[in-house]
């Protein structure tokens, strides 16, 4: 099972939307997809039409050791969901007294590794919390979701620095990809930001930039993926193309989840040295570095 964690410390950049609709697009391409809602705001849970507080969820899995299988719910679009609740925020505080709390999600998902092809983790809008650390520890690919708006590059570089720090501290191994969202090609500013993102991240940037579409908001309000509401709209086409890219991803650093990960009590596959980020990111992850990045093309 490949786990994709959608991260950014900025709120409103499209993490939850991308998680829901990318998951549904992967389902339409025949994949078995599990969506893990790690945001205490539970927007992914609500966006898939599920009720919160109606049973065990991610909080019970992480805090009380409830098996993930018992918390699974079927959701719209053929997705399976590990729902969030408002109590998930309590886990952030309780985790300060726990031992290696950032490994719990990986251990919890390991028994499901043979039943799903993809796990999409929708992270809260902060990178330095234990919930995001859990998502990164379980991730094979960290997808940095970047809105093509003001301060996009600055926020992306800062988030990358934090992701690098998290990977170094935990010894996690994952690939990094960048996804541009909320793109509006009618505005010159968005076009310039997309060019700048491409120049900075090169091949790490997904070919598909998810365009701004009102159908996405309507689908969220309806509690279903956009593929069910308007399968021919441009957002559905964008996520279909993104799903094809995700399925064609070739991992260079990340290691897929396997059932053996559940047996490890300590840090998983602790490497002798911290896992290095890809060479293309090595000079960009720190915003204070001034060395220009050679574009990948």
């Amino acid at each position: 099972m490949q786990a994709l964690s959608l991260v950014n410390q900025k709120g409103g950049c499209g993490k939850t939307t991308s998680a829901i609709h990318l998951g549904a697009a992967l389902v339409r391409r025949g994949a078995r997809v599990l969506l893990v809602d790690l945001d205490p705001q539970a927007h992914a849970t609500l966006g898939l039409g599920c009720e919160i507080e109606s049973g065990p969820g991610v909080h019970e899995v992480l805090a009380h050791g409830v098996p993930a299988r018992e918390a699974l719910r079927e959701a719209a679009g053929g997705l399976f969901l590990l729902p969030a609740s408002a109590r998930l925020g309590e886990f952030e505080e309780a985790a300060t007294q726990a031992l290696a709390p950032e490994r719990r999600l990986r251990r919890a998902l390991a028994p499901l590794a043979s039943e799903f092809d993809y796990a999409l983790c929708d992270c809260p809008p902060r990178v330095d919390g234990v919930l995001t650390a859990n998502a990164l520890a379980a991730a094979t690919v960290a997808v940095l979701v970047v809105e093509t708006g003001a301060f996009a590059l600055q926020g992306a570089l800062r988030a990358l620095a934090l992701v690098e720090e998290s990977a170094r501290v935990q010894g996690s191994r994952f690939d990094v990809r960048v996804l541009a969202t909320l793109f509006d090609r009618r505005t010159r500013f968005d076009r310039e930001v997309l060019v700048a993102l491409q120049a900075r991240f090169g091949s790490l940037l997904f070919d598909t930039a998810v365009r701004r579409d009102v159908r996405l908001r309507e689908a969220t309000a309806c509690g279903c993926p956009v593929q069910e509401l308007a399968p021919r709209c441009r957002a559905a086409l964008d996520f279909a193309a993104l799903a094809a890219e995700v399925q064609a991803l070739r991992l260079s650093n990340g290691r897929p989840l396997c059932p053996d990960d559940a047996k490890q009590s300590g840090p998983v596959d602790e490497p002798a040295c911290p896992a290095p980020l890809p060479a293309e990111l090595a000079s960009t992850a720190r915003p204070d570095r001034c060395a220009p990045l050679r574009p990948a093309f």
């Binding site: 090609r185 997309l194 993102l197 491409q198 991240f201 091949s203 070919d207 598909t208 964008d238 193309a241």
Partner: peptide, 20 residues
């Protein structure tokens, strides 16, 4: 992102244009 993909995102119909 491929430069051709960038061009299709900027001035085309995104992934549909790129695929064609």
């Amino acid at each position: 992102m491929d430069p051709l993909a960038l061009l299709c995102n900027l001035y085309g119909d995104g992934p549909a244009t790129l695929r064609r």
